[in-house]
Amino acid sequence: MSKLPLNRRHVLAGLGATLATPALMGRAHAAEVTLRLHHFLPAVAPMHNEVFLPWAAKLAEESDGAIEVQIFPAMQLGGKPPQLADQVRKGVADIAWALPTYTTGRYPVAETMGLPFMAKDAEETSVALFKLMEEFGEGEFRGMKPLAFWSHDGGKLHMRDAPVRTAADLQGKKIRSPNAGMGELLTALGAETVFFPVTEMVVGLSNGVIDGCCLPYEVVPPFKLHELTKSSSEAAAGARGLYANTNALLMNERTYESLSDDLRKLIDDNSGLELSRHMGKVTHESFEAAGRELVEETGNEIVEIDAAEIATWKEAAEPVYANWIARLDEAGHDGTAILARVNELLDQGA
């Protein structure tokens, strides 16, 4: 597994080669359509540089310049991260990277993959998530066209001081939870949980409002998490990760429908299952590895939560699953079937 970030040429190749259709040949190089892509992380974030920029370049190249994607990182178009999906639906942005878990209960099928222990490596989880949404998520993002669904690697517990080896180490600790499901589990294990967007986490760690957070290693570099914490705890090798939040790349449906047939096809050819797989693969092989390496180089302690301890945490998560099944049922879904399908897809692998 390479620990080096993928360069632009490699990422473009990884997205796959799509030949220009006759309708795209000979277009003028002036853009016919400009799409604004909005997201919440700073421009130094790996996802911005190693996925979104190459993706935008690929659309421009294959459309012979007819499509221009302008990328606005760090909420430059205004608003807060939980508002990104609504910004796409309302047309404030044409495309956005949104986290359904920031609006708990609104996109319950997509949020299911954020439950505790519903994570393998990012590529496998991303493929499972995309297939789950194909089967159960129709209509969940009304007014929007999902372009990709992906996941990060399993989250780790990053602490300001001593590492977490057992639930006893969580007693009374204030932890920033990544979503509602993990918040329920951490509370059951004895922690005091809070939730706010990842963009506000630095302040919380710096001023001691929180003792730690639950995040993948990929978030370490852009937020200098290695400088704010002294230890990281990860699930035993071979076990499922603690959690993995759902990510969605969404496009305004009206904007998509307004495109010419050939440009819509070009968008289709550069989205869907393979884009989801690619985003998960790059996240796992490049972003996660680079973040962990930075933690190691800083000299922070990395510990493994052993399999027996993880087993007790999974037992503690049973009420979390039951609550989520009830929530899915209330939303008109078959919650039991969805949870069973998630586990089946994860067990099948990518």
Rank of each mutant, 00 (worst) to 15 (best):
P42V: 10
S63E: 08
T103H: 12
A43K: 00
L77N: 15
L53Y: 11
G91V: 09
A60G: 01
D94S: 12
A60P: 03
T104L: 11
A74P: 08
V44E: 15
A43D: 10
L84I: 14
V109L: 04
R89I: 00
V92T: 11
G65E: 10
M75W: 09
E50H: 07
A98M: 06
G105Y: 08
T101P: 07
P42D: 00
A57C: 07
P73M: 00
A57K: 12
W55S: 02
E111M: 15
G91L: 03
F52E: 03
I67N: 03
A93W: 07
P81Q: 03
L77Q: 11
V109F: 13
W97S: 00
T103F: 05
Y107Q: 05
Q76Y: 08
M47D: 05
A74Q: 15
E62A: 06
R89T: 04
E61W: 10
G79N: 06
A93P: 00
P82I: 06
L77I: 09
V51C: 13
I95C: 06
A98C: 06
Y102I: 08
E111C: 15
K80Y: 02
G79K: 00
P42S: 00
P42M: 14
E50G: 07
P54R: 08
A56G: 03
P42C: 04
A96M: 01
Q70Y: 11
Y102R: 12
A96P: 09
Q87S: 04
D64T: 14
R106C: 02
P82H: 01
P100I: 07
R89V: 01
A56I: 08
G78W: 08
A74E: 13
L41G: 01
E61D: 15
W97H: 06
A96H: 01
R89F: 01
K90M: 09
D86N: 15
T103K: 09
Q83I: 00
F52M: 12
P81T: 05
H48G: 06
G78V: 11
D94H: 13
D64R: 14
K58D: 02
G79S: 09
L84T: 04
A56K: 11
K80H: 13
P46Y: 14
P81S: 10
A43R: 01
P100R: 00
G91Y: 08
L41C: 05
D64A: 09
P81V: 09
P73F: 09
D64Y: 14
A66Q: 11
A74S: 11
T101C: 11
M47Q: 07
P82C: 01
A85D: 15
I67Q: 12
P100Y: 05
V44S: 12
Q70N: 10
K80G: 02
N49S: 05
K58V: 06
E50T: 03
W55E: 01
A66T: 09
R106A: 00
V44Y: 09
E111R: 10
G79E: 01
M75H: 13
A96R: 00
D64I: 06
I71L: 05
M47A: 03
G65Y: 14
V109S: 11
D94T: 10
A60L: 03
F72C: 09
A93M: 11
N49G: 13
A43F: 03
I95G: 02
W97F: 13
N49W: 11
G105A: 10
